[in-house]
Amino acid sequence: MYLSWIDYTVFVLLLIFSCGIGIYQGCIRSKQTSTKEFLLANGRMKILPTAMSLLASLTSAASLLGMPVEFYYFGSMLVYCVVPWFIGTYLTMKFFIPKFHYVGNASIYAYLEQRFSLTIRILVTGSFILVTILSMATILYGPSIALSQVTGLNIWLSVGLCGIVCTVYTSIGGMKAVIWTDVIQASIMFIGLTLSIIFGFIDLGGVSKVFEIVNNGNRLQFADIRLDLSIRYTFWSIFIGVIFSSTAQYACIQTQAQRYMCVKDTKTAQRVAWTNYV
């Protein structure tokens, strides 16, 4: 079953708005005359849009498609992620964000050169580029498969279209365009998820019916504290693993950490991190 005209309209408008934001930020509102303006928005971004951009950059379409599957097959232990995420956010806010603003460089890996050597910086930067290329391939390919199934659009055309649109608004509008486009995308994701939950409850007969089905299927799991490495999700694997993974995502990846530099000072950047967590 293909999408309706409403779905196509939303999809096309999203692409048009994304390109339009890039053109507006790069050619009309500002000429992007400096590197700081292009890469860091001159440090003038507000807390809420920056936090929403941080959220959107961490929540890919692959995550939206994959997380429900994880819950369906492996139960609800993943809800414990909120606790280690809090710790990861605190570590980022307390130790990393002040250092980013102290160094004052668009690249967070500049500190590695100051602290260690140019060789270390090049190695870490090269690793980041390689990981980003591989992850972006997955992020683009997975949703493109889903899009091709519901639209009949050729999968490679879908990949190319999304890639071209993102390249256009990023290269023209810089970080301002990226952040404001992320705001639109985050809003659409939030609305879509909310409506999916509401209509899902309605279609299945209400909240109580949903929890009855989930309970009968043994999907409500909140007390697995076994120290068994063969089990996919336990309290300990989630608690320990997500502390490291969330800290790495929030503080050690250029695409995320660069957003902390788009606000005026350290305290504002710390508020961005907390707002993103909430």
Rank of each mutant, 00 (worst) to 15 (best):
S117W: 12
S107W: 03
I129M: 15
Q249K: 12
E212V: 01
S230G: 01
D224P: 13
K31A: 13
A177F: 03
I122Y: 01
S208H: 09
I243A: 11
S196R: 03
Q25R: 13
K46S: 10
I225S: 08
G66H: 03
F71I: 06
P49Q: 05
S187I: 14
Q254Y: 07
K267G: 01
D182E: 08
G205Q: 11
R29T: 08
V278Y: 12
G88T: 10
G66T: 02
S135C: 05
T59P: 00
F201Q: 04
W5R: 05
W5E: 06
T132W: 07
A251F: 07
L14T: 15
L118I: 10
C252V: 10
S57G: 09
M189T: 09
K46N: 13
K94M: 07
F11K: 02
A269C: 02
G43Q: 09
P68N: 07
F96P: 00
G66L: 05
N105I: 03
S117I: 13
R29D: 08
N276L: 06
C252A: 12
V159H: 00
R29W: 02
Y2S: 14
V79G: 05
A273N: 06
L13D: 00
V12E: 00
G192I: 03
M93I: 15
S117A: 10
T125Q: 09
R121V: 12
W85R: 04
R232G: 02
P143G: 14
T170S: 11
A110I: 10
K264P: 00
L48C: 03
Y90K: 02
Y141L: 06
L65I: 11
L227Y: 11
F199R: 04
I225H: 07
Y80F: 03
M52T: 01
G26I: 15
C27W: 14
K36E: 15
L153A: 14
S4M: 02
Q32N: 04
I164Q: 04
M45N: 09
S148T: 06
T50S: 10
C252L: 13
W180C: 02
V183C: 13
V168H: 04
F11C: 02
T132S: 11
A248I: 04
D224Y: 00
Y24F: 08
M67D: 07
A257P: 03
K209L: 06
Q221M: 07
I188L: 15
S18H: 09
D224F: 00
Y250N: 09
L40H: 05
C27A: 11
Q254E: 14
A56N: 15
S246F: 06
S196L: 09
S187D: 04
Q256L: 13
Y24W: 08
T167D: 09
K267S: 04
S53L: 02
V69L: 14
Q256A: 09
F71H: 00
Y24D: 08
G160Y: 02
E212F: 05
Q256C: 11
Y73K: 08
L112N: 11
R271A: 08
